[in-house]
């Protein structure tokens, strides 16, 4: 019963977020305009063009990227048993951005093709995260929450610096990725959405399929092993899924931060700790949050627009500090 209510509330919120998103923007297009643009598209109508070429891909990109980052946050936190597990903090976003920028700045043949951008981003993000895990498992204490977080921040800083270095050499690429690099749903076009969507849907399903194992993993490594969960296999599979989720999101909207931090914290409160319910709800909640963040970013200083990533950071950074402060007290 409570679960049903949570699902209904989420769907309602999603509807409201979509309405809010569609109502913002410099050109007022009413509901009838939106309806006609989708169902009776007239290529000569400027409003219809605005909806189909700009607003719809932007909305889809925001939803899909938010869903991916929200689920990636839950997966990371459960796999690492670390409430600060977040793609942006742990270096995945910066690694993905670096890989994309390198492939744009240098002609690397097929790897520079837009269709492969999500794969390139996922590889970059996955490698950066692998580096974080290797660095933070060194030493006697192994992989602690503090060490993973610090190593994530260090690797992020390194990757961001390298990205800036590449872009300084190549101003042409800089011009095309400036907005994207801040993390902005406006960078979501049909090309990027089409390339990333199938991969993301697969990764979302694969992440959901890990739910039962994550439930058992929450009871500790010893109990999980005795219940028949292979720790190494689960962690590796989880790592790949997280990398694809983040890569797909970054390829569309750039490195948007803190969704993966706020969403799991909220979803756990809203729903049970059972990952079979938690993971899909975190995905929908993430989608809602990024749509709202994007709409607020457009509306706050209208007619000027803030980048979506600036919006999520404004809210997310204090949440990060709050979680750290609460952990310090314990």
């Amino acid at each position: 019963m409570r679960g049903l209510l949570a699902v209904a509330a989420l769907l309602l919120l999603l509807g409201a977020a979509v309405a809010f998103h569609q109502a913002t923007g410099p050109r007022p297009i009413g509901w009838s305009g939106l309806w006609q643009a989708v169902w009776a598209f007239d290529p000569m109508n400027f409003d219809h063009q605005t909806v189909m070429a700009l607003r719809l891909p932007r909305l889809l990109a925001a939803f899909l990227a938010g869903a991916a980052l929200g689920m990636a946050g839950v997966l990371l936190q459960s796999l690492l048993r670390n409430p600060l597990g977040e793609p942006h903090i742990l270096g995945l976003n910066a690694g993905a951005s670096l890989a994309v920028v390198v492939c744009l700045a240098f002609p690397l043949g097929v790897f520079s093709a837009p269709l492969l951008r999500p794969v390139v981003a996922a590889t970059g993000g996955g490698l950066a995260f692998l580096l974080v895990l290797l660095l933070s498992s060194a030493g006697r204490l192994g992989l602690t929450m503090t060490k993973v977080t610090f190593c994530g921040i260090a690797v992020s800083a390194l990757a961001s610096t390298l990205t800036s270095g590449v872009l300084l050499l190549d101003e042409e690429t800089l011009a095309t990725v400036r907005l994207w690099l801040l993390g902005d749903a406006a960078a979501g076009t049909w090309t990027t959405v089409r390339a990333a969507a199938p991969l993301l849907l697969l990764a979302l399903l694969a992440g959901w399929a890990l739910a039962a194992r994550l439930n058992v993993l929450a009871l500790g490594d010893a109990l999980a092993t005795s219940l028949g969960v292979s720790l190494l296999k689960t962690r590796l599979l989880g790592l790949v899924v997280v990398a694809v989720l983040c890569g797909g999101a970054v390829s569309m909207v750039g490195p948007v931060g803190f969704i993966g931090l706020m969403v799991p914290a909220m979803a756990r409160r809203l729903s049970s700790l059972d990952h079979r319910a938690l993971l899909p709800r975190a995905a929908v909640l993430g989608g809602i949050m990024l749509i709202v963040a994007d709409a607020v970013a457009r509306w706050l200083l209208a007619p000027r627009e803030l980048a979506t990533g600036v919006m999520t950071a404004l809210v997310g950074a204090p949440v990060f500090v709050l979680i750290v402060a609460r952990r310090m007290k314990e």
Binding site: G220, L223, S226
Partner: peptide
Amino acid sequence: ARQIGLLPQTPLSP
């Protein structure tokens, strides 16, 4: 896992 069960010394209790 269908043959051997375990009570570890310190299970995590979320």
